[in-house]
Design a binder for these strands. Structure first.
Lengths: 337, 337
DNA sequence: TTGTAGGCGTTATCAA
DNA sequence: TTGATAACGCCTACAA
């Protein structure tokens, strides 16, 4: 069956294509009689609007992209849900891309977005994103909101959380419990997010006249097994450590695994704080005390900002920093040491 | 800056637009000299291909949609990752929609896909999807792969798991451990998936001369709290129950919560099997024995099938059923009762 | 209030 | 091997 076009509808309703177009978009003053006739024709012919043609004509689209490393990471899944809700409320379509930390895949996806005339994007940049990428992205006229990972380049809007403050909260909590030998586990060297968190950690130690020991600061992948491994190695070398601030909940979960293998009782023999408040955090035994960053809210805020940019908001780049909060559960015990 | 079009490139390279178009798509016989000249011009002008125009002209697109209820459900996140990988390997863009079980949102998204000329979709239909929806969807010429939830309508391709067999495995495992008083917790009445799982459960009981007690079959929402509530109510009425087959891992996690409140030791006082093998299953204490359905693989297979349909494969509707497997962990203990 | 007609950027047909 | 040109379906001046 041939596709029904605006012209077909117009012919059927005995009006012009312009009239039909106006009715479709509720624009212009169209008399009630005409409108009804058009609506009826639309219905009768089973007309389907061709967004592609409209996009071409308008040099725009109602499509935006979301780039992230791993949708199976609960943190990002939450964020995606927030963004998706927000976009849907504006009748925009959301393209999803899993870059898996590959700068190449990321570049490919952005190219596709550009080719598809996407009207904007939210991105959690891959770790090895070259500076050139940001440069050339800025030259395009497309709104881009960076999320979660703050780019070195300050020319972009950014929505994220206060990493420094978040880890300060976590560290202070451990200090309050009486711990003095506190390690920092996780994150990738060179990451700016990690630098911020590390700053929160060390600032709190120093504030309490506790020396920062670089051997107790250890990096690892964002997986449970890496976390477990890191913890095992650390405790073998420094058994005096009684607590750890973990870079992420996932790492913390790994650390718990390792501790359990050493028959350490978490919350009594060893205290632990995570970061992200992923849903697993409340499920493990003992439940993980962690820093919550409201992933869904980050997605929502990023969506709102993106939409306003698409609408033409051209204020200078913004940084929206959502306040983190400490969710106290069981992994730090409650007794003073 | 005005957009650079094919015509601009053609002018710059002193060839026709047809030639440039052919070079771009590696089609037709173009002499090496010309090709190089075109390529150079492309580069020089910083040309960006306009997919929208091509789509309009071709009456097609490289976009597909994915509809699901909740991306934050780890099962669907995994599936999404599988599908996303598959689509990316074919250079297709993936639209994501969170329908949140709303038939209305689902309809809106499908309409958008149609309007955008999407070339296909994978959908996990919302629970209350009206039969009319399927009817009208079939009339469109767009490939649709149903996933996870099998539609009553058999006119669609389907990729999912064998619910019947999966729950049979789970039930048999409990029987092997010596349990006789086994409950079934979870799922929504009227769901066909649930009917299949219930079938697996009751068939195994009957096979072992154990009567099926309908009071021990209880439905609940797919949340932890509902699971917990259901378990509490059930045990209050029937303390003789010693084991449960849960409709989903999420429900099983809720049941664990409830058991713990009753000071029952899971794996010793009460045995539990879940379904889905979400990542939380291996994290809880004790780790949850569950039926694994390879969510990622479902996504991948759905993607492959969808792609083949888009390529023109017009065999009759297929049902791809992935075999489930029992992942034995700790929640059923190991001692015979 | 409604109609006419040209153009958005690409592809495909046909001719050269 | 390459070029000219007419669609694809919609939107928007400009006219009526």
């Amino acid at each position: 069956m041939a596709t029904i076009t605006l012209a077909d509808v117009a012919a059927h309703a005995q009006v012009s294509t312009a009239t039909v177009s106006l009715v479709l978009r509720n624009q212009g003053r169209i008399s009630d009689v005409t409108r009804k006739r058009v609506l009826a024709a639309l219905e009768e012919l089973g007309y389907v609007y061709n967004q592609t043609a409209a996009n071409l004509r308008n040099r725009s689209s109602n499509q935006v992209g979301l780039l992230l490393h791993d949708i199976t990471n609960p943190f990002y899944a939450e964020m995606t849900a927030g963004l998706s809700d927000e976009m849907e409320s504006h009748q925009m379509m959301l393209f999803l891309a899993n870059t898996a930390e590959s700068a190449q895949r990321q570049q490919r996806f952005v190219d596709s977005l550009l080719q598809n005339n996407a009207s904007g994007m939210v991105m959690c940049a891959a770790r090895q994103t070259p500076a050139l990428f940001y440069e050339s992205l800025k030259r395009r006229q497309i709104p881009v909101i960076m999320a979660v990972r703050s780019p070195a380049d300050s020319g972009f809007d950014y929505v994220g959380t206060d990493n420094f403050l978040g880890i300060q909260l976590a560290t202070q909590h451990l200090l309050n419990q009486g711990h003095r030998n506190i390690a920092f586990i996780g994150g990738q060297e060179g990451s700016s997010t990690r630098a911020q968190r590390l700053g929160g950690y060390s600032s709190k130690l120093l504030e309490n006249q506790i020396p920062v020991r670089s051997e107790w600061i250890i990096s690892c992948e964002a997986t449970q097994s890496s976390g477990a491994q890191a913890c095992t190695a650390l405790l073998a070398a420094f058994p005096q450590i009684t607590a750890a601030v973990c870079y992420q909940d996932i790492v913390a979960l790994g650390v718990m695994l390792a501790l359990r293998q050493k028959d350490k009782v978490i919350g009594r023999d060893f205290a632990l704080v995570g970061f992200d408040d992923i849903s697993e955090a409340s499920l493990v035994q003992p439940a993980l005390t962690t820093v919550s960053v409201a992933a869904r809210e980050i997605g929502r805020k990023a969506g709102q900002l993106l939409f306003s940019r698409i609408q033409g908001n051209d204020e200078p780049p913004k940084r929206i920093i959502l306040p983190p909060s400490l969710v106290i559960r069981e992994s730090c015990g409650s007794a003073k040491f």
